[in-house]
Amino acid sequence: MVTDVDRAIERAGALIGRLSPQAQRLQQRVRQKRRAHFLKKLGRVVIAGGAIMVASALFGLFFAPIGSTGVMLAVGLWILAAWVLLVYPSFPEASTETLVQTDLKYLPAQTEVWLASQRKALPAPSQRLLDGIGVRLETLAPQLQTIDPREPAAVEVRKILSDHLPELVNGYKRVPEPMRRERQSTGQTPDQQLEAGLKLIDEEIGEMTRNIAAGDLDKLATQGKFLELKYRGMDGVES
């Protein structure tokens, strides 16, 4: 006999099966970020507990024995500190507002979190495009760690990730659900317009990644020529 639990498990299995490898990868990265955030807070709880124990021992050593009451106070203080540290700060959920304020080097990671939260609101073809954009952001993220935020490429990255992409998705979500499959004056449905917009953004992020990499390759080649002239030139002089 098939129970409701069995049906729920089947539905969950089917959902997982429908997720693309890119979607599973994106969700895994978000889970890893949440886990890392929690472990960091847990580490602070351990440090706070150690600090309270050391302070209590020093007080008992130099002033007066703390006794059972002091031990209970120390434990109570540690429990209070643990509660505060585990609750605050909460995991930084990404929103259109936080994307605008995020430092450039952390923007791809925050955008990934935001993409994962928007996925369910979009039709299946756009979900796959969103997953692909998330994968592209994995490649882009290391490139933004050292780039000057004032460089044109950096400015363009910020404009796309914190402005154009959120506005495209949020604009689609503002369209009433029954109208999303109705053909508009442009000849396309909102579903199709969203898909076309995401394709353009996906291509643009890929192009920016290649341009930044080309600049890095040029710098590497220049440095290589400099080293060759400096050291091989010196060897030629010495010989």
Rank of each mutant, 00 (worst) to 15 (best):
T3C: 04
D4K: 07
A8S: 11
A8D: 09
I9W: 12
I9H: 13
R11S: 14
R25Y: 01
L26W: 01
L26P: 10
V30M: 01
Q32C: 03
R35D: 15
H37M: 07
L39Q: 15
K40Q: 15
K41G: 11
R44F: 03
I52T: 14
M53T: 14
V54P: 02
A57S: 10
L61I: 06
A64Q: 09
A64T: 13
G67I: 09
S68L: 08
M72C: 06
L73Q: 04
I79Y: 09
A81I: 05
W83G: 11
W83V: 15
V84H: 02
V84P: 03
L85F: 02
L86T: 03
L86V: 10
L86P: 04
A94Q: 12
S95P: 13
E97C: 05
D103A: 14
L104P: 10
K105F: 07
A109K: 11
Q110P: 02
Q110S: 11
T111H: 00
W114A: 01
L115C: 05
Q118V: 03
Q118D: 07
L122H: 04
Q127I: 08
L129H: 12
I133H: 12
G134H: 02
V135L: 08
V135P: 00
E138T: 13
T139G: 05
I147F: 04
D148N: 04
R150Y: 07
A153Q: 03
E156L: 06
R158M: 07
I160A: 02
I160G: 00
D163Y: 10
E167I: 05
V169I: 15
N170Q: 11
Y172P: 10
M179W: 09
M179F: 08
E182Y: 11
T186Q: 12
G187C: 01
P190R: 14
P190Q: 10
D191I: 12
Q192F: 06
L194V: 01
E195Y: 15
E195D: 13
A196V: 05
A196C: 08
L198H: 00
L198K: 00
G206C: 11
R210H: 03
A213R: 08
G215S: 03
D216H: 02
K219M: 03
A221S: 08
E228Y: 07
L229Y: 06
G236W: 09
